[in-house]
Design a protein around this nucleic acid. Structure first.
Lengths: 143, 143
DNA sequence: ATTGAAATTGATAAATCGTCTCAAGAAGAT
DNA sequence: ATCTTCTTGAGACGATTTATCAATTTCAAT
């Protein structure tokens, strides 16, 4: 029994709804994707080269964008690259970004998340994911 | 009396501190930048082409990055492009976004902002701005 | 199982965005 | 005014992502 049945069903539902097909590549990429918290297309390309040396980079980009449309992934432009975040991953972390040197620090904060839930509930929303980025200057760039 | 004296002084202070020079191009770009809430390098390039047709795109990129280092601007990767935000514009609000119907609800939450400050301080950062987006389903789309 | 229409793939070309290079020019201290 | 250093403009370049297209695969209907 594969591990990520729920997500696979969600993908199949999306595919069915849009007359898209369930292919070996999409299954392969989904399996790899769901084991990550976030990943770039390039990283996945190298990672999957072992399992399928002929899997093209374009296919990975296309498939990760498909996951975004299906609600499984969330694209985040980070520096020069695009990170594809695994939405089902709960240990969500946020980012502190230095606008001087582009340094990125990851952090988690349960209190903030709790307050986010409150805001959402107050407005009748059910949150599936979020994005929080704090921009500023790190200690080195500030002086 | 020119409008943006404070920012110009801040830029000159940064230039002096780093052995950089105050040039005609930097002054021109600063004036244009301070009239915007946020702008891309490309937009500014076209906008300034009237005033100085020979101003190069590379100079604009270099100068906007300089503004980031000086704390006047903040780079934000949005879609495929980089937005340079005018830090002196402070009217900040966050967003609740329904992934079902694309409805967007704006909100403000001081408690969250306070916690953000704490996180930043703990990591040696000084926040100039932030972005918080909560994604989920609104009450109508949830059933 | 076979067929056939439609979607997908892989390889690569092309587009996009931003940075680097470098000779020529400008700034600012002496 | 001179001299050193920084900056500029123009285009080359590099990195990332998307578009193109012939060949292949999927999947529903035989």
């Amino acid at each position: 029994m594969p591990k990520h049945v729920k997500e696979m069903e969600a993908l199949k539902a999306h595919l069915g709804k849009h007359q898209l097909k369930y292919t070996r590549q999409r299954e392969l990429i989904l399996e790899a994707f769901l084991q990550q918290e976030h990943i770039t297309a390039e990283e996945m390309y190298h990672q999957l080269a072992k399992k399928d040396p002929h899997l093209g980079l374009a296919t990975i980009y296309r498939t990760l964008n498909l996951f975004c449309e299906a609600g499984l992934a969330q694209a985040r432009h980070f520096g020069t690259q695009t990170q594809y975040d695994n939405v089902s991953h709960k240990g969500h972390h946020d980012h502190l970004i230095c606008t001087g040197c582009q340094k990125i620090v990851e952090f988690e904060n349960c209190e903030i998340e709790k307050l986010q839930e409150e805001v959402a509930t107050r407005n009748g929303f059910t949150i599936t994911t979020h994005r929080l980025e704090l921009y500023g200057l790190c200690s080195r760039c500030r002086h």
